[in-house]
Nucleic acid binder design. Structure first.
Length: 275
DNA sequence: TTCCAGGCCCATG
DNA sequence: CATGGGCATGGA
């Protein structure tokens, strides 16, 4: 669930488990059906995996903080165990920029293309070839057309320019770790291709600010259907942001992620039934 | 074929 | 401050 919930976009199913990269380390992870409390992990990667999948997050406390409402409780029940991943900052920012107005599967396609064409090859597993996500410098050196050819469309210039600012040292992602949410968000939003939603994705998935709430079209629908269903007047994005931040609490990012994954998988399931 | 997607940006009220 | 239109692409 965690790996298909629209946080990361490069993992492949392999046998009963998954293969992917954490930074530049290839890893196999399997959650055995008979013993889901444990994980099978490729040798030497257990600390890396524990950190990446945030296995230290106190889920009891997080679940206790969920609002007492049908929508949140239903999502909680459906997504039990789903984690907010700790992503490498650059990879998180870059994939979030490419995600604008794209379905999760499209973002995945773009991510894999970028890795294959411009990322550094890494020692794979089971003879598979894997590439790390391209560095800011690698992307900054490309032409806009090269990026467009990979299917990025109008996102190409945003990704390239943001990569350039980071590669040049003009913008320091690591330095932002010391700042509070609002300051990090404000700084991120100066980058091309980064607005309120993408900024909150990076806060949540990159900087581990578990109270950050990205509002995309899915969450917008969930809010409209469940929390503003009886509201006659128009509800703007700013109000939705304020409401969900106040209402979803300290771990609002988790609530948001569970609502997102629940809504999306339900839709996919319905669609599959029809055919 | 048509629909729509983890939005951003800029020009107007 | 809020709103509306434009923007490229491809999976379902």
């Amino acid at each position: 669930m965690t790996l298909t919930s629209g946080q990361v976009f490069h993992w492949h199913q392999h046998d009963a488990g998954w293969i992917g990269l954490i930074g530049s380390s290839a890893v196999y992870v399997e959650q055995p059906a008979q013993n889901p409390e444990s994980l099978l992990i490729s040798p030497g990667a257990s600390e890396l995996v524990s950190h990446y999948f945030s296995l230290d997050h106190c889920m009891d406390e997080i679940y206790a903080s969920f609002p007492e409402e049908p929508a949140a409780k239903l999502a909680l029940k459906a997504c039990l165990g789903l984690r907010i991943i700790r992503q490498p900052l650059w990879e998180c920012l870059a994939t979030s920029i490419t995600s604008a107005m794209k379905q999760v599967s499209h973002v995945r396609t773009m991510s894999l293309y970028l890795r294959d064409h411009f990322g550094e090859a890494v020692d794979g597993l089971f003879g598979m070839k894997l590439n790390a996500y391209p560095t800011p410098r690698a992307l900054a050196e490309l032409s806009v057309d090269q990026l467009r050819d990979v299917g990025l469309g109008w996102r190409a210039e945003n990704l390239r320019e943001t990569a350039r600012r980071i590669a040049s040292g003009e913008f320091d992602l690591e330095a932002l770790r010391a700042l509070d949410n609002a300051s990090v968000h404000r700084a991120l939003c100066t980058l091309p291709g980064v607005g309120p939603k993408v900024g909150n994705c990076v806060l949540l998935f990159g900087y581990e600010r578990l109270d950050a709430i990205p509002i995309d079209v899915w969450i917008k629908r969930v809010l409209e259907n469940n929390y503003f269903a009886n509201t006659k007047r128009k509800v703007g994005m700013k109000e939705m942001q304020r409401f969900s931040e106040a209402h979803f609490g300290t771990f609002g990012g988790y609530v948001q992620q569970y609502l997102f994954h629940h809504a999306r998988t339900r839709k996919l399931l319905e669609r599959a039934k029809k055919h």
